[in-house]
Design a binder for these strands. Structure first.
Length: 338
DNA sequence: AAGTATTGCAACCGCGCAGTC
DNA sequence: GGACTGCGCGGTTGCAATACT
């Protein structure tokens, strides 16, 4: 018991809820509802703050809550949604009936930990780890950084409708934002927005907010499409941080059949193109299978902070032109965590 | 069997937003 | 417009259960 900052109540219990407290809360809410949470504790005879009551009800006591392990379908959905909307747990939870944001958040965080904990099979220079959401962890400062984006921000420029279409396996609406331009052949647009998700997990990945990749679990079952993209990245002169890359209208997509190229680097603008041919892709898949690249993606980054760094996919590093001097994005797909 | 490390998850904290006065 | 209040959200913590040595 003690003072509680949120409600100024002196006699507020904290910590785990007892069965008696649960019973009181359930009885009160099922008969009166919960119009005003701040009134609930007093009316229900609980020495808790309203916030605590709300949390207990929403995350544990409400009758429509669903418990137990996440199903593979739910897991896939979480991964896909997280790729699309980032750490917006409440939003993700809204797509999973009966699941709470807290539960999903816990699931995700423990899953991330598992991925990080994988042993030193990553070819990390100077102990840098890549998180599945493309963040980089440097143990020294424990900061997570991203080349371009706030991890809270969506990693894709999908509209809500587009996202839901993908999730629901429906045909998506026509592209309507600046992500896909009319320069894309319609066939390619279709392949972008109609990922083959009928079997196996679908993963969407992105590194610089304007890369994306859809991949079915079985790589051979779908002609691998890797987006070739031209992107630009600016530099914020006031604090020397990279700004989120700008969407370039010249974005194109094609089946992977060429090498990696990057070019046209001047001052603080980087333009790069990324594609993979089948051999490279298979190489990567092999590495992933061998757990040489346990995080399941290739990353190369030649920014000032991670000079010449490659995580996974050494062959791909060799493919990079040696005179590349600035940040180059990363992409790629993701092995099934299931 | 005992001690230690890890995991899973319930609960708390603080912040931001919206509504109200 | 500013202060206040309540709510919702995401980040984080704490601890019991479980796994490991």
């Amino acid at each position: 018991m003690g003072h509680h900052s949120c409600c100024n109540q002196q006699k507020v219990k904290r910590g785990l809820w007892s069965p008696e407290e649960d019973e009181k809360l359930i009885r009160y809410i099922t008969t009166h509802g919960y119009g005003c949470w701040s009134e609930v504790p007093e009316k229900a005879g609980l020495q808790r703050c309203g916030k605590s009551c709300r949390l207990r009800w929403i995350n544990y006591l409400r009758p429509d809550i669903r418990r137990g392990r996440f199903t593979p379908e739910e897991e896939k959905l979480i991964i896909s949604l997280h790729g699309a909307v980032g750490n917006r747990w409440a939003h993700i939870a809204s797509h999973l009936p009966g699941r709470t944001d807290n539960e999903i958040k816990n699931y995700w965080n423990s899953w991330i930990k598992k991925k990080i904990r994988k042993p030193s099979s990553i070819t990390t220079p100077s102990s840098t780890l890549l998180l599945p959401n493309n963040n980089i962890i440097t143990p020294n400062n424990n900061n997570t950084t991203n080349n371009s984006s706030d991890p809270q921000q969506p990693q894709f420029n999908f509209t809500t409708n587009q996202l839901e279409n993908i999730i629901n396996h429906h045909h998506p609406p026509p592209p309507q934002d600046n992500f896909i331009t009319t320069k894309l052949p319609s066939q390619i647009q279709d392949s972008i927005f109609t990922p083959p998700i009928s079997t196996g997990p679908m993963f969407m990945f992105d590194t610089n907010n304007n890369h994306q990749l859809f991949q079915e679990n079985t790589i051979s079952s779908w002609p691998m499409m890797v987006q070739t993209t031209t992107f630009t990245m600016g530099l914020d002169s006031t604090n020397n941080n990279y700004l989120p890359p700008l969407i370039d209208n010249n974005m194109v997509a094609q089946h992977a059949d060429t090498d990696i190229q990057c070019s046209n680097i001047n001052d603080h603008v980087v333009e790069g193109q990324i594609t993979l041919d089948d051999h490279q892709l298979n190489q990567w898949v092999q590495e992933t299978n061998d757990e040489q690249c346990p995080n399941g993606f290739l990353f190369w980054d030649q920014s000032d902070h991670h000079q010449g760094q490659t995580i996974g996919g050494e062959e791909l590093q060799e493919s990079l032109p040696s005179n590349t001097t600035s940040n180059m994005g990363a992409l790629l797909s993701y092995p099934s965590p299931l």
